[in-house]
Amino acid sequence: MASKNFSSVARSFIAHLVLIILAFMCLFFFYILIINSTCSHADLQKGFSALPKNYFGKNFSAVANDGTFPMMKGIGNSIIVSSLCAAICTYFSALTAYGLYVYDFKLKKVAFTFIMIILVMPTQVTALGFLRLITNMGLYDTLIPLILPSIASPAVFYFMYSYLQSNLQLSLVEAARIDGCSEMKIFNRIIFPIMKPAVAVQAIFTFVGSWNNYFVPALILQSKEKATVPILIATLRGADYMNFDMGKVYMMITVAIVPIIIAYLFLSKFIIAGVALGGVKE
């Protein structure tokens, strides 16, 4: 009995220790980031300090007014692209999932299999063809090729489909039809509101994925006014680094990362539940 208690106490101790170490590793780097973004370049040259200084405002306005790295414009571009992506992606994926779930038609299996095949294919493999297509359409260096392809999102589709499988009674659709509701109205007025939890979770994931996307914008975008945040970070890395105001560098990274962190802290319950939901289905 005594040994059983000891081993369970030891186990609890080890578990908490490992968790604390991992939590420290996750948070430590962001802590240094925030501290350093409040320091001036001179402060940073002196070495590391654990306490924040008072340069936050100055660094922030330096970043906001920087001509070579238009960070605010970049954030604006990123917000436009990401929100449109999230909205379009979730709506059309829900529509597709509804169509494939409720209706029976000849090529139903083919369509489903086709979407599943695309699901597991990485986007970088088709990047060359995509680039040529976009250039031929004259859409090179615009934000449109970043937004429109999100209409076809197999991962989100599959999530919506699984959600419908476990949450939609077909009798509801039939009742609405008997009452004389047109098909599109059934979807827009009845089904889409039912899918709100799934839509909310996928909207978050799509927004974050689009915000963090680097490979595709790096291919499509050229001019600085159209650049999204990851591209600005890459330009920062490639620039003549030694002449930099390090406080400004840290502030730029902070501005790129912190909005997502804040949104995450408010929405964390949804996000984690969403991952678990997707995991169980798979």
Binding site: L19, L22, A23, C26, L27, F29, I32, L33, V208, W211, N212, Y214, V229, P230, I233, A234, L236, R237, M246, V249, Y250, I253, A256, I257, I260, I261, Y264, L265, S268, I271, I272, V275
Partner: peptide, 24 residues
């Protein structure tokens, strides 16, 4: 708390994270 913290790095922009590590 631990669940929230360990999931946090998944949402961070990989390029900014790499830039951060480069400077750190």
């Amino acid at each position: 708390f631990f669940k929230v913290v360990i999931y946090l790095p998944n949402l961070i922009m990989a390029s900014a994270f790499a830039m951060l590590f480069f400077t750190l």
